[in-house]
């Protein structure tokens, strides 16, 4: 399965999804007007990945800003990862949710996802 790489832009994040290592990273800003178009290839990649995932999947979400339209698409991404989690067991998927020091809104956003999903989150504070 091919690695998915998307270069970041002022309104969209950098994405790196490596099936071999099981490392998935989304970082930067996600504030496009049409987030469905942007997240489509990511969700499709995860559909394929979920059929034969790596033994361990590490997901790093390092978002500085995201708009509400993206927030729904990010939930879709997590729901695909939930399938991987169900398949590969408790230690199979780790979601690292990074937030900058004092960014309580970003921490709360991570906690919102955590409460909706049955998948463990690790909240990691980044020092400025």
């Amino acid at each position: 399965m091919e690695t998915l790489t998307i270069q970041g832009s002022p309104k969209t994040p950098t994405v790196e999804m490596d099936a071999k290592s099981g490392v998935i990273e989304i970082k930067g800003r996600s504030i496009p007007e049409n987030s469905i178009d942007f997240y489509k290839p990511i969700v499709e990649w995860l559909d394929e990945y979920a059929s034969s995932p790596s033994g361990e999947t590490t997901v790093n979400i390092k978002l500085e800003y995201f708009n509400t339209s993206s927030s729904k698409c990010i939930l879709d991404v997590f729901k695909k990862l939930e399938l991987v989690y169900k398949k590969s067991g408790e230690k199979g998927v780790v979601i690292n949710w990074f937030y900058e020091e004092d960014d309580e809104d970003m921490l709360e956003a991570g906690e919102d996802y955590q409460s909706i999903l049955k998948i463990p989150f690790k909240m990691i504070e980044l020092e400025e």
Binding site: E33, I36, T68, S69, S71, K72, L75, E108, D112, I116
Partner: peptide, 21 residues
């Protein structure tokens, strides 16, 4: 917060691409 989570998880997008959030 409850309303936010409810709308976040409702799988709906408007025809304008917004999520109602």
């Amino acid at each position: 917060q409850l309303l936010y989570k409810l709308i976040l998880n409702n799988n709906e997008f408007s025809d304008k691409g917004g999520g109602g959030l």
